[in-house]
Design a protein around this nucleic acid. Structure first.
Length: 427
DNA sequence: TCTGGGGTCCTAGGACCC
DNA sequence: TCTGGGGTCCTAGGACCC
């Protein structure tokens, strides 16, 4: 019994770019259209984006590259190392295009966004979705899929279906149950590996069955997020559209090594580099950190060597974004957790307890030095922005590249550089 | 030989206080 | 010798997302 006219319900669209990283590479390389293409993660480690053709061959998402090398060779799959500067740039263009439709938009990740379509008339919704697709494709060259329904979770379902049956746009409003019956539990947004296992053990293997379990059972067996997912499948909106841009609460920079690292010295170099990059990132957002975590680990996959993983967190007396102070603390932390005799595979740092840097101006404990350091940091950031990342660094970061990432398949496209613009020859 | 990186949120349990 | 109970805050670890 409801007084609410169903047409008054929320309508939320999820716009998701198809094989986003692959699509970005294709923009600048027409010859790989319709061909199997794969983009690899940092260090050329795993498959993180696949074209439809590559999916058909049987290359799985997240699979280690070395395991699919044979498949790649046999099928002439085009391989690319990831180029995040390019993907970030294309992403901004896609989102800008989306904003030409509505301000009520939540940028959810690099390749997807929720848009509120509640104001669109019922009979126009699907066409509107088609128009969004068309414009993004025309203005940016990126193909998308659009799923629309009453809640975020349902629009995720709709989007998933649109991707699978290649219709481009799905407005899920009637016969939702039929769709949910064919929707595997593990594909539901918010249901990961662990929850899938739990649900399947309890004979809940489709979205439809999850929708119909009792509230008390979900709450007891999972947590509030589990309960929210169930409500959302019922069409009751529990997860709001976050249209305000928020600043990050922590900032992590970490990398696997191209080659295993044993010495403290090399770890110091990498941690210093990561720390400088993280500090620059938070300065860019006018933030300061109160806490810094350093972590190192050996490979969890190597069955023949002993595994070691450790981290330490240091609270700073006063929040800062000063690279030199942060690096000093990071080095202290690293010495605490470093153990000789291991072959390290990855190292990183996390800056946390981030706040707005303006908040520190009122803090009487802030040393006068802070002003001096701020001027220095500004000069460094300016120079690095102008002459390229790490144009100015500190000696501690090292110049020997032996531990740095592998990146053997880069397309080297840089949309911020004139040198990489396609050339047109007029005769 | 080779298995990514960067986030958020939730919760159990410990520390602490009265 | 006996050794409470309830509240809050914090954090590490886990689960999830892309």
């Amino acid at each position: 019994m409801s007084y609410i006219n169903s047409s008054k319900k929320n309508k939320i669209a999820l716009i998701d770019c198809n094989s986003f990283y692959v699509s970005c590479e294709r923009l600048f390389n027409p010859k790989i259209k319709k061909k199997p293409v794969v983009v690899l993660s940092n260090n050329d480690g795993c498959v993180i984006s696949r074209s439809t053709e590559a999916k058909k061959i049987g290359i799985k998402m997240g699979e280690p590259y070395f395991k699919v090398k044979e498949l790649v060779r046999k099928n002439n799959v085009y391989i690319f190392s990831s180029n995040y500067a390019l993907y970030g740039d294309i992403s901004r263009r896609v989102m800008k295009t989306l904003r030409s439709f509505s301000d009520k938009i939540e940028i959810y990740s690099i390749d997807e966004a929720f848009v509120d379509l509640s104001h669109i008339e019922e009979k126009e919704v699907e066409n509107y979705g088609k128009e969004i697709r068309k414009r993004i494709l025309k203005w940016t060259g990126i193909p998308t899929s659009v799923g629309i329904s009453n809640t975020k979770t349902l629009s995720k379902v709709a989007n998933h279906i649109a991707k699978e049956n290649r219709t481009g746009v799905i407005y899920l409003k009637e016969n939702i149950d039929e769709s949910l019956k064919n929707f595997h539990i593990s594909e539901v947004w918010g249901v990961g590996k662990q929850l899938s296992k739990l649900y399947i053990k309890n004979e809940i293997d489709t979205a439809y069955k999850l929708k119909n379990i009792s509230n008390s059972w979900v709450k007891k067996s999972t947590n509030v997020l589990g309960a929210k997912t169930v409500m959302e499948l019922r069409g009751i909106s529990c997860i709001n559209l976050e249209t305000e841009e928020t600043k990050r609460k922590s900032c992590c920079v970490s990398r696997s090594f191209g080659r295993k690292v044993e010495s403290l010295e090399k770890l110091q170099e990498s941690i210093t580099t990561h720390c400088l990059n993280a500090a620059e990132k938070i300065r860019n957002d006018n933030q300061i950190a109160r806490s810094i975590t350093i972590f190192i680990r050996t490979s969890p996959f190597d069955k023949h060597k002993k595994y070691y993983s450790n981290s330490t967190t240091i609270d700073l007396p006063v929040s800062t974004s000063d690279s030199l102070q942060l690096v000093k603390k990071a080095m202290e932390g690293l010495k605490k957790i470093y153990k000789y005799g291991y072959f390290y595979q990855k190292a990183g740092i996390i800056l946390s307890k981030l706040t707005d840097s303006s908040e520190n101006e009122l803090n009487l404990l802030t040393p006068i030095m802070e002003n001096k350091s701020r001027t220095l940091m500004k000069a460094i950031d300016f120079t690095n922005a102008k002459y390229g990342r790490n144009a100015i660094s500190i000696a501690q970061a090292g110049i020997d590249n032996s531990w740095k990432m592998r990146k053997e398949h880069s397309s080297k496209i840089d949309t911020a550089s004139f040198a990489y613009l396609p050339k047109v020859i007029a005769t």
